[in-house]
Simulated assay, not measured.
Amino acid sequence: MMLFIVMLSIFGLIGLTTGLTPYYSRKSTQFGVSLPAALQTGNQIKLYQKQFFIFHLIAVAILSVPLYFICQMDYLVMVQWGGIYLVVGMLALLMMTSFLFLHMRKKVLTLKSELPKTELESAAQEIVVDTAYRKRRLVVPAWLMIVPCLFIMLFTLVMTYENYDRIPELFPVHWGVDMTVDKYAEKSILSVLAVPAFQLVLLVVMYLSNLSLKKAKQQVSSVNATASVEKSQAFRFAWSVYQWFMLIALELLLVKIQMVMIFAEMSINFPLFIIAFCVIFIGSGLFLSFKYGQGGERYQLKKQLKEEKYNTIVHYDDDAHWKLGIFYFNQKDPSLFVESRFGVGMTTNMARWETWAMLVGLIVIILLPVLLIN
């Protein structure tokens, strides 16, 4: 029953989070399509959002049915097939989401193409650029992420060194969905450093994510520009704080995993702990998504702000630069980070060489802990 609850919770959280994505995406870029004001709040777009959400509820319900029958099998067979189906089910859900997104995107593009040309031209507006934007407190300072993590990694290294003799010659490195050990590694100086290496990988990934919030290109509306700038700032700082808490929590979780490997004892109920961990952070992410929306669009300011004048540039429809509505490719844009078109967060300009260098670097450092274990 515990296995069924764990896997059902995973499917449910992923399906719910993905299905709600259109609701906290920008109104002006639904399903990766740049929309004029005439369509942003139209009934047809609302219908597409509702259909996207309902589909995910149905998909999760269908994918959860085999879980019930798997959990009726003998224990060893259940554990084996449960792990396999968990991976297969998540891949199936991802594929269905991708096909549905492209289907909805095609519908929105058709809807947009049916608008009169004069209405599309009149929908063009000015985009505001705040030249002092980078001087604001946009994210948690980098040192506040790096320093605590380095101390945690140092503690992990010292603890490992001091207790090296206590580590068994074959120590656990992987647990099944029921938290029984299903893989061991031979003890060596390199293999016991796998967890500190994971901690380093995590720090690098979260640092880059925080950097993207700081450096991403502005997307500020010309309608009440001052409020739009404030909302954008609040959005970036809130998500940066969220990432900071998640980083520290994950680093400490890795310390606990290293202690389990060294002392060969599980002092907490890991399945329940992992479920609670996922619920807290996914729930917090959903809360921030609906409170702020993409770029702070949904955020309600506590006070009315006096309008100020900013430098402006002419708005243009950049759908041509968004491949499949999610991949940004613009050789003329010097920006490395831009706001995602679907959901919340940032993405990269795939036309920049720095993006590919960063991806290769991430792949290399992610493979490092795996190589150490093996």
Rank of each mutant, 00 (worst) to 15 (best):
I326L: 12
G293R: 03
D333A: 13
P334V: 05
K306M: 15
E251T: 04
Y316F: 15
V338Q: 05
S267L: 14
Y310L: 10
F263K: 13
I313R: 15
I274C: 08
M261I: 11
L250P: 01
I268L: 15
G296A: 10
C278R: 00
I248K: 04
M246E: 12
V279F: 13
Q294Y: 10
F290G: 12
L254V: 04
K302Q: 14
V260S: 10
I313H: 08
T312G: 04
L286C: 09
A264N: 15
H315I: 00
L250G: 10
L252C: 08
W322N: 03
F277K: 06
K323Q: 13
N330Y: 01
Y310E: 02
V255N: 03
G325V: 01
F329L: 03
V338W: 02
M259S: 07
L336G: 08
F290R: 10
C278I: 11
N330H: 01
Y299V: 00
D333L: 13
K306E: 15
F329W: 07
L254T: 00
A249H: 01
K332C: 04
F245M: 15
Q331H: 12
I313Y: 09
F273E: 06
I280E: 02
F270H: 09
K306A: 13
G296V: 05
S335K: 07
K323F: 11
G325Y: 00
